[in-house]
């Protein structure tokens, strides 16, 4: 550890910024960061793929995140994931062909009292049932 350059600590911070700016980590950003921090591209790639917050592919316009915490799980979170997958016709982690929706899961958002929880573009939806899934999607499908 002691052999590391303290600038190395900026890496995750810069990846956060890049992710925020582009919605993913484009290849040219990796080479740019590599040059700035003097860290090899392969190492940066290793780090960014280790953490869930970073994506290598652009996400859809609307990011749907379903909480998979324990409390959401015992309250039927799995059924919500399956229903979303059916309705969007994609698996978790994927983006619809029209780049409209990306479906992701998260381990716990810490709002266990109101689970199952679905978050779309940062907006929280609480106590979700299979029936409510359609209504949530409609809100965004019609937002064009």
């Amino acid at each position: 550890m002691s052999g590391l350059n303290k600038d190395h600590g900026k890496l995750i911070h810069m990846l956060h910024d890049t992710q925020k700016k582009f919605g993913y980590i484009p290849a040219h950003s990796i080479s740019q960061i590599s040059g700035e921090l003097k860290i090899s591209e392969s190492e940066i790639f290793g780090v960014l793929t280790f953490y869930k917050a970073f994506a290598l592919e652009p996400r859809g316009r609307h990011l749907i995140t379903i909480c998979m915490g324990t409390a959401c799980h015992v309250r039927g979170g799995v059924q919500i994931v399956e229903e979303m997958e059916r309705k969007l016709n994609i698996k978790v982690g994927k983006t619809t062909a029209n780049r409209k929706f990306t479906l992701e899961t998260v381990n716990c958002l810490g709002c266990c009292a109101i689970g199952p929880v679905v978050v779309v573009n940062g907006k929280y939806y609480s106590n979700i049932t299979i029936k409510k899934v359609d209504a949530i999607l409609k809100e965004y499908q019609e937002s064009e």
Partner: peptide, 13 residues
């Protein structure tokens, strides 16, 4: 956690 602060993969040691 310390590995992560140092900008590395979060491997324990």
């Amino acid at each position: 956690l310390m590995a992560s602060i140092e900008g590395r993969r979060a491997f324990p040691s």
